[in-house]
Amino acid sequence: MRRLGAIVLALLLAASLAGPAGAKDPRWVFYTKDRTHYTSPWFKGAHRIMVPFGCTRAPYYSPDPRCEHDHGFHHGLDVAMPCGTPLYAAVRVRVMPNDSLGPAYGDNPVLLRNRKKHFDLVIGHTRKVYVQEGDMVAKGTMFARANDRGAPDGCHLHFEQRAVGGDLASAVWPRPLLRLTPPDAS
């Protein structure tokens, strides 16, 4: 009985340290006026955009000639979410080698490809990845969880859509691919 009590106490303590599922990370900084919480078939829950695609005042990017006021250019979309948030394949994808991705994506980024729909999707700042290079991942499969590795501003995911086999220069606005939807939208 004493051992059971200790186990229950340990589980309660672990749950309290993890915080509630919708807990806000005190390190989050939002570089957008958009306060909408979006859902997506790519992740669980509804979450806010931290750094939008394109010109941004976020301090992590060097000034870019495409942007005014010495702002930098963000090639993806950062979505704030608690660490451990599950990620799902919204369509069938193949896991590609991630060795071409630098440290800005964290130490365990995922590179997914769908040739039929003509995209590569880079997902940065993942914690645990349940798939391996070469795997074909079926639609609806949980393949990773969110983390804060390589992210100075707390737990979030970086989504970057590229051309198949493309590099950073081929990045395009990823919002249509992510199918971001306000929770109350029909």
Score class of each variant (00 low, 15 high):
His125Val: 02
Leu121Tyr: 00
Pro41Trp: 07
Arg162Lys: 06
Asp70Trp: 12
Thr141Phe: 13
Tyr60Asn: 12
Ala10His: 11
Leu101Met: 15
Met96Tyr: 01
Val51Trp: 07
Pro52Cys: 13
Asn147Ala: 15
Gln132Phe: 15
Gly22Leu: 03
Val172Ala: 07
Pro82Lys: 11
His158Val: 03
Pro176Asp: 14
Arg115Gly: 02
Pro176Gly: 12
Gly106Met: 13
Asp70Lys: 13
Pro20Trp: 01
Val91Asn: 00
Asp153Val: 14
Val91Gln: 04
Pro86Val: 10
Thr181Asn: 05
Glu160Ile: 02
Ala14Cys: 11
Asp184Gln: 12
Leu9Met: 14
Leu177Cys: 09
Leu101Gly: 08
Phe30Ile: 06
Arg35Glu: 15
Gly134Trp: 04
Pro97Gln: 06
Leu77Met: 13
Ala46Glu: 09
Lys24Thr: 08
Val129Gly: 05
Trp173Val: 09
His125Phe: 11
Ile49His: 02
Arg127Phe: 07
Arg35Gly: 05
Ala21Asn: 06
Pro26Ser: 14
Arg149Gln: 10
Pro65Gln: 10
Lys44Arg: 12
Leu13Trp: 15
Lys33His: 10
Leu17Met: 10
Tyr38Met: 14
Glu68Thr: 06
Lys24Ile: 05
Val164Ser: 00
Lys116Pro: 00
Arg179Tyr: 02
Ala146Pro: 06
Leu11Pro: 13
Pro65Phe: 03
Thr141His: 15
Val122Ile: 09
Asp107Val: 14
Ala151Tyr: 04
Leu157Gly: 05
His156Thr: 00
Asp135Thr: 02
Ala21Glu: 11
Gln132Gly: 12
His74Val: 05
Asp25Asn: 14
Ala171Leu: 02
Gly54Glu: 00
Leu4Ala: 10
Arg3Gln: 12
Lys116Thr: 00
Gly22Cys: 01
Ala104Gly: 13
Met50Tyr: 01
Thr85Asp: 01
Cys55Thr: 09
Asn108Asp: 11
His158Pro: 06
Asp153Gly: 03
Arg48Tyr: 01
His158Leu: 08
Pro82Tyr: 02
Met50Asp: 07
Leu9Trp: 13
Met96Val: 11
His71Thr: 08
Tyr60Thr: 14
Gly134Gln: 08
Leu4Trp: 13
Thr39Gln: 12
Asp135Val: 03
His37Asp: 07
Tyr61Asp: 06
Pro182Arg: 11
Leu111Lys: 08
Val93Met: 08
Asp25Ile: 07
Lys24Gly: 07
Phe43Met: 10
Ala14Ile: 13
Trp42Asn: 08
Gly5Lys: 08
Leu77Pro: 05
Leu168Cys: 06
Thr85Ile: 04
